[in-house]
Simulated scan of single mutants.
Amino acid sequence: MGTTYLAYDFPLLSAFWTMLWFFLWILWFILLFRIIVDIFRDDDMGGWGKAGWLAFVILLPFLGVLVYVIARGKSMGGREIKHARAQQQAFDDYVRETASGGTAAARPSHADELARLSELRTRGDITEEEFRRAKALVLGDDAPSASATTAADTGTGTGTGATSRQ
């Protein structure tokens, strides 16, 4: 009479089968949670549809997951890509906003910019003419005032201008 050897009769095969089942269970739970997240992420499905799929996946997990992957597996990837792109866009917008000086509340106000310009004029870093031009730009005037332009054209201004200093 011959004896039958099972995989568990050999210690190395026993460890292999144990590890295989362990990783299959981990894979199963990852798939189950991804499907549950996909059910909630789908904007096209209504509340009753989400409730039905969720009940099916939770009450009959193996059959529910198998049917969900067959019925809606192709669109799962599309929703995952859409979500990843939305996250990347939000991150890019955050980086751009932070790099450009933050929100509008964090940007200096007109009063802050005028105070800084006044301080530069007081220290002598800019001339009166440069101060007037910069003040006009800060206050929203696209062109400097007429008197400042004529003074610069006739050469009667007190300074040589920022472009001639460089």
Rank of each mutant, 00 (worst) to 15 (best):
H83G: 04
Q87I: 05
A99Y: 03
E129M: 14
A55H: 02
G161Q: 14
F131D: 02
D112R: 10
G46C: 07
T160K: 14
V69M: 08
G140M: 02
W28N: 07
A51W: 02
R133F: 03
M45S: 06
D9R: 02
G46R: 02
W48A: 13
F40P: 00
A136S: 10
D92S: 06
A55D: 03
R121N: 04
I30V: 14
E97A: 15
L13I: 09
A104S: 11
D153G: 08
G157H: 05
A111N: 14
F91M: 07
G47W: 10
Y68H: 10
S109A: 10
G46N: 15
R133I: 13
I36S: 02
T160I: 15
T122G: 04
A99V: 11
G64L: 10
I70Q: 04
A143M: 07
A105K: 14
H110K: 15
R123P: 00
R132L: 12
L137C: 00
R41E: 10
S147W: 02
G78I: 07
R123T: 00
G2T: 06
G52S: 10
L137D: 00
M1E: 09
F22C: 08
T154N: 09
R121I: 00
V37P: 00
E128V: 15
Y5P: 08
P108L: 12
L12D: 05
F91H: 04
M45R: 06
S75T: 14
T149L: 14
A162F: 07
F131V: 07
A104K: 08
H83Q: 08
L117W: 01
L137Q: 07
I58W: 04
E119Y: 01
F10L: 14
A115E: 15
F10K: 11
L66R: 04
T127Y: 09
T122S: 09
L24A: 15
L66I: 01
I39C: 03
G161E: 13
D112C: 03
F62V: 14
Y94G: 04
M1S: 13
V69S: 04
T127N: 11
A99I: 11
P144G: 06
A15L: 15
Y94S: 10
G161N: 12
V138L: 06
T18W: 06
A162W: 08
A143G: 00
L13Q: 07
I39A: 08
G78S: 07
P108Y: 05
E113V: 13
A134C: 03
A111S: 13
G159S: 05
T122D: 12
A143I: 06
G52P: 00
K82V: 03
E97V: 12
R107E: 09
W17H: 12
Y8F: 15
S118K: 11
V67S: 01
G102P: 01
M1C: 08
D9S: 06
R133A: 04
L120W: 01
W48M: 13
G73C: 05
A148H: 02
G64T: 07
V95E: 02
A152E: 12
R34Y: 00
